[in-house]
Each structure stands twice: as C-alpha cells, then as structure tokens.
Design a protein around this nucleic acid. Structure first.
Lengths: 196, 196, 196, 196
DNA sequence: AATGAATGAGCCTTCATTCAT
DNA sequence: GATGAATGAAGGCTCATTCAT
C-alpha cells in the first residue's frame, strides 16, 4: 500500500465517485478529475481500477470486523453486544458513508473474491453468534432463527446507505438506538401495564 | 404452432444477466447470447438498454405497489397488514429473484428518474403508514419512529436478494413469518411465563 | 476462422502494416485505416491484435511446412530436394513478401508459443534432414554440420525479407537458383577444366 | 572508491531488455528496473529512448565496419578475407549477442535514418567487394552474383542472433569456420580423389 | 544523480446503437 | 424477425518525457 502525498485524496475521491455512479459506472477519469489530476496519473498510486475499489473499502470493512471480534470475547449480555454492534456499524456509516456505500453496493454478499467472501462471512457469523448467545442464555427467544435475524439486522443497517444523511453523530446514535430497540423488543406495544 | 414473440424470453434473459453482472457490467451481447440471438436483433424488441432495465423491473415493482395499496384500505389490524406486506414481498422475491435483484441493485433508493423515485417513495410511505396506524391504534409502541421502522423492514427484506435461495414457496412463507415475528415482537424472550 | 466478406482485405492490410511498422509499432487504427474502416470494426473479424498477427502469418507458414513435408518422402537426390525447398521458399517470399516479413520479424526463432515454436522446429528439422541425407548418401560432404548448414540456409533465405523486391517470378527463380548454387557448390571456382 | 558513472550499466541493461522484448515492446521502466533505478533517472543519461537504442548498437556496428574497411586494403586472397570477415562477425555475435540482436532486429535493412542506412550499405558493399575481388582474380566462380552472395552471407550470419548460444569463443570460431567452408566450397562432396 | 509525481498522447478493447439485406 | 457489419464514443491502461525536490 503506497503512502505518497495524495494517496488519501485519491481514495476519498474514488469513494465519492464510486458511491455516486457505482464502480462500473464511474470512469477513472471521473475520479482523476475529482482529485485534480489526469487519469493516467492515478497509476502512480494504483495498479488497477479494482485496486482502488479495495483501497476505498478495506479500512472500514476491517474496522467493522475488528470491533465485532473484540466484542465477541467481552463479558456482556447479548442484548448489550447487539446494541454495541449496531452502534459501531451505524457510526461508521455516519462517518464514512461513501466508503460504506461502495462496500455495500459492490462487495457485500457478492462473490468478488475469496478474501472478501471470507470477511463477509465472518462478520455475518459474529453477528449471528450474538443471537445464538442470547437464545442460549435465555435472554432471547428460544425459537429464534439466529441466522435469519443476523441477516435481517445487517440488511436493515446496510440499507441505510440508501437513505441516511450523514454528518450528525447524535442522530447516528439515535438511529442505532431505535434499530436496536426494534430488533430487541419489536414494535408491538409492551404489556407493561399488565398486572404486577 | 404459433411462434409467439420472444419478448418474454428477452426480458427473462435480461433479468438473469443483469442480476448476475449488474446492469452496467452486462452487455447487450450477453443478453442476446442468453436468449440465443445476436445483439443487433434485440433492437427488434427494445429501444435502448435502459428500456430493457425498466421492462425487467416494472411488473414486480407494480405488483408490490398494488398489493400495498389494496392492503391500505382493508380493515385489518396493523400487525396483520404488516404480515401481509412481508409475505407478498418475500413471495415475490422467491418467485422472481433475478428481477427483484435488479430492482434493488439498480433502482431502489437511487434517483434514477422521477417516476421511479415516486414509486419508491409511495411504497415506503405505505409501509410506514402501517406502522403509524399500529402506533395510533395502540397496538404498536407509542414512541415508535415509523419511518425508521419502515426503512429497516424494507432494508431487511431487500437484503434477501443477497442471500436468499429461491424456489421453495414453503421456505418463503417461513422466512416471511420469522421476519414479521422479529419486527413485531423482537428477539427478547417473552415474559409469557408470567402467572396466569 | 471467420469468412466474412472483407476478411481477406483485413488480413492483407494487416500484413502490409505489420511488415512496414512492425507488429508492436503498428496500431490497429493503422490497419483499420488501410482497410477503410474504424478500428473498432476490426473486432467483427478478430478477437485480439495477436489473432490478427497469426492470421497474417499462418497460411504461408503452413504452405512452407507442407511443401517440406511432401518433399521429404519423395525419391529425389538431396541436391534436388534442396533446390526444391529453396525454390518454394523464395517463391513464397516473392508472392507474399509482407506476410513472410511479418513471420520472420515477429515469430521465427522467437518463443512466441509452443505451437509456433513447433512449426519452426519442424521446418528447420526437415531442411536439416536434406543435408543429412545428402551427407549419408555421399553426395554431400561427409564432415558437414547439417544443422549449421540448415540454419545458414534458412537465415540466408529469410534475410531476403530485408532486401528482396517482389513481383517478378522470373527473378525469384533466378535468386533461388543462385542461392542453391552457392550452398551446393560454394563460390570457389571449379577446378573442372584444370587438366590441359 | 570512485563510483563511476553508470552509463555502461544503462546501455548493457538496455541491450538485454531490447533484445529480449524488442525495442518497441520494451519500456524504459523495464530498462530502469534492470539497472536498478527509476525510469525518470534514465534521463540523466539519455535524451530519448531512441538515443538509447543507438547507444546500444553503435559500438559493435562500428567495430564491424572498421574491421571490414581495414581488411579491404590488406593484401590477402579473397577467400582469406572472407574467412576474416566471417570470423570477426561471428566473434562479435559471441561476445555481444544482445547488442547485435538489437541491431539486427531493429536497424539492419530498415530505413531508420540516412546515417544507419549508409552504414548498412557500406558494410554490405565491403562484403560484396570481397566476392567481386575473388571473381575477378579467378579464385571465385566467374558467374557469381557478388551482391546475392554477400546478402546471403550476411543473412546467414545475422540469423545467428536467433539461435546462437554465446559464451564459448572456441565454438564461435568453429561456427565461423563452417560458415566460411560452406560459402567457399559448398556442401557437395569434393571430387578431389577423382584423378585417374 | 536520483526520486516521485505528473503529463499527454496513444493504444487495445468494449459496447450501445444503427442499418442494409 | 434476424443477421452481419459498421459506427463512434468511451474506458482502462501504458508509456516516453518532464520537472521540482
């Protein structure tokens, strides 16, 4: 991974352009124009267009995965782990929307390459494990299909790349809280007032 | 034997090819090969590549919308409306995965054109209204953010295009039921065992 | 191998352009201009630039080889076989100079691919065998290094692509005769008439 | 330790790279990598890629020419002059194969520039003169086409760049001797023992 | 002398689209 | 309706060359 002066500019420009036009729909000329250089000059930084895609997408993907791995070994109730995962996922979307959009649109759930399929799978599995833990501990519903729940949660979060307007960390936290609430408690009214 | 026009073949082939390679990544030659004709011949059926995209995507989009519209005026509890919407959405995915994949990947939540943005918005709104109704009737949680809930549900369902293996209507119904359960009741264990 | 209407034009143009500018130095635009179409249109005939190179070069290479193979099994004195090989080789150069130039410049003696290396080797071997036969039959010098002789003869003939001006079959036959004479008898004056 | 300029390294690297990939097929980056510097740095030594080509090729071309010029004015029988020319030519190929390969492939017999065409022509002419002298002195066959003979000899020698494996001076001398023998005496068995 | 970066031009190839047959 | 051929416009990538540091 080269570290020349304008490397970050290049990747940031690529994230913006790819997320707006799609990887296939964007030309390297678009990216170069966004950075302020000619398309040929990009090749001082990358070896291929695909390289650039991965460079855009890798750091956040790794952060997400690292966070989920660390959470796994912590001693927390499943519901709390779930809230944490959602919080970090949503915060990354808030801070790095274009990067994550590209990941979601171009890589997640596609069979791009073994490496990325493995990352995908591992993240899915870590989320799934949270549901499994919850079910086994009795905190979550016994009949829960953990894999389905994980897929649904990830889908709901990734779908944010289609509607979320980033830039407000407070709102990100609010969204994360609501999402967690829905997945934990559902939308039905609590029978809180049930007898005592 | 009347040789019917091969319009349906063309659209089906396009759905398969677009869902596999993406709209941008697929060439009309790919589509033509899949139907068994030459790319020039496609222009006996379509006026442009984009035409073909819309042709692939429109019927299911309209079915989804029609269903949601009809449901809106029915006299059913919100939870039941929600179950119905999920069921139809999932069944369409089961029956027409390639078509829906193309819609989700290329059109949903993108600003392709006013027409499609309107359809998107209307469907979203109809789903949102179910949550609003539920909250107003007291069946759903008062503090619920209906828009967020609708977006999450749609995201979770559309994400199925990345993992669902179609062809089994029974499994489709099961998935729909589980999804509805999670969104209605959450994953937390019910305090069913409360006395009496 | 496609056979559309202008296939031969395309290959002939490529032969001219490649032989003039070299394969690497020639652009497909050059070739297209020579045929009178746009460079993109060439791809209705070929799959890649290299394809075109092989198409240019294959027919004559095969003719040369076929001729040498047929000669091998004929019952002729070695000196006559040698004259025949030279004659055919020189005639092909006379009739198809640009094609042969491309072969000599870009393919002969280079390790382009196994297929071509094999053709090269076989032709060399067939020529070498003529010298071996001659030496074994006593017609040629016993101490002759057949491989060196074959290489030298082929080199001398192929070098014609750098100087020969084609279009005169009679001159081609004359050149072939002289070449054969030199290789058979050398340039030294015969001591034939020496008695007296 | 004085660090001498790396001019020679640069030229040697260029010779290797050009002879392997061809002048057109080789990039200056290839050359730079072979020397161990970056392509921009090459411009501390050369003014253009073509410059480098000429630098690679000139010394040996001049040596060949100088040798042929000196030989011309010596008082030697034509057959001896021919042996000398062949010997020097082959020895240079043995010692400097990559350089000569580049010359043969890219320059000899092409109309690169007047300067090089003149060198070509002069060398050819000097070789031709040897055959003329031989014919006039009666040592060589009267009917000999001196130009054809010279072209054939040069072709045979230059063709060595396609097959010769350098590094063994003794073998170089052997090859030179055989080549001279073939051109002088041909391959036909001598009727030396024919008396009676 | 060397480097890293940028330039600008060109090249192979792809592709949506058109059209005569 | 279908085909083969052509078009024109990009697009990804390479590369000789320049230049400030």
């Amino acid at each position: 991974m080269p570290r020349p002066s304008r490397w970050d500019d290049v990747v940031a420009a690529a994230a913006r352009v790819f997320s707006e036009k799609g990887f296939g729909g964007a030309s390297l000329e678009d990216v170069a124009t966004e950075v302020g250089m000619l398309k040929g000059s990009l090749y001082n930084y990358i070896k291929s267009k695909e390289d650039l895609l991965f460079a855009v997408v890798r750091p956040d993907a790794e952060e997400l995965l690292t966070n989920a791995r660390q959470l796994k070994v912590k001693d927390l109730p499943a519901s709390e782990k779930l809230r944490q995962i959602v919080l970090v996922h949503v915060e990354i979307i808030d801070r790095h929307l274009p990067y994550v959009s590209v990941y979601v649109q171009e890589i997640a759930g596609r069979g791009i390459s073994k490496e990325w399929a493995d990352m995908d799978r591992e993240y899915m599995h870590l989320v799934e494990q949270v549901f499994v833990e919850g079910a086994e501990s009795g905190a979550f519903d016994r009949g829960l299909d953990a894999k389905m729940a994980a897929r649904s949660l990830i889908g709901a979060m990734n779908w944010m790349t289609r509607w979320y307007e980033p830039g407000d960390p407070a709102q990100a936290r609010a969204v994360a809280a609501q999402l967690s609430d829905v997945f934990l408690s559902g939308v039905l009214a609590r029978r809180t007032a049930d007898p005592s």
